[in-house]
């Protein structure tokens, strides 16, 4: 990250091919992306803290009756938190798309098969 150069290089005629390969498949990482400042990270963390506070707030039903909106709003907040950590703290925003694809493949597959399984068990009925 510090000294970032794209795979240029030196004594090889292969480089062009190489670079072509890279961009062909994986949206070659732009190595010279600017990483966010520490302050940006703190802002994300603050957002996460606020959402967490909201989540916990739902627990105290006496304050506000969420009714049928409870579960969808909880899941929505969870997804937002998940997304913020993955994209900012895990740098998926800034990194090669290939990393994200590896991860989301596993994630979506997991959601798919397990939601299907729970459906077969009539969990959501």
């Amino acid at each position: 990250m510090s000294d970032t150069t794209t795979p240029t290089a030196a004594n090889t005629g292969n480089v062009d091919e190489h670079a072509a390969t890279a961009s062909h498949e994986s949206d070659a990482p732009s190595e010279d992306h600017a990483h966010p400042s520490d302050w940006a990270y703190v802002k994300i963390a603050l957002a996460l803290a606020v959402i967490t506070a909201l989540e916990v707030f739902t627990y105290f039903e006496s304050v506000l009756d969420w009714g049928v909106a409870l579960v969808p709003s909880l899941i929505f907040m969870m997804i937002v938190k998940f997304y913020l950590v993955a994209t900012w703290f895990m740098h998926l925003r800034f990194d090669s798309k290939l990393f994200g694809r590896m991860f989301t493949t596993g994630l979506l597959l997991a959601v798919g098969v397990y939601v299907a399984t729970l459906t077969v068990f009539e969990f959501f009925a």
Partner: peptide
């Protein structure tokens, strides 16, 4: 990252 790109070593000594 920087790591990978230090040298295009596939053909260096």
């Amino acid at each position: 990252m920087s790591a990978e790109t230090a040298t295009a070593g596939s053909v260096t000594t």
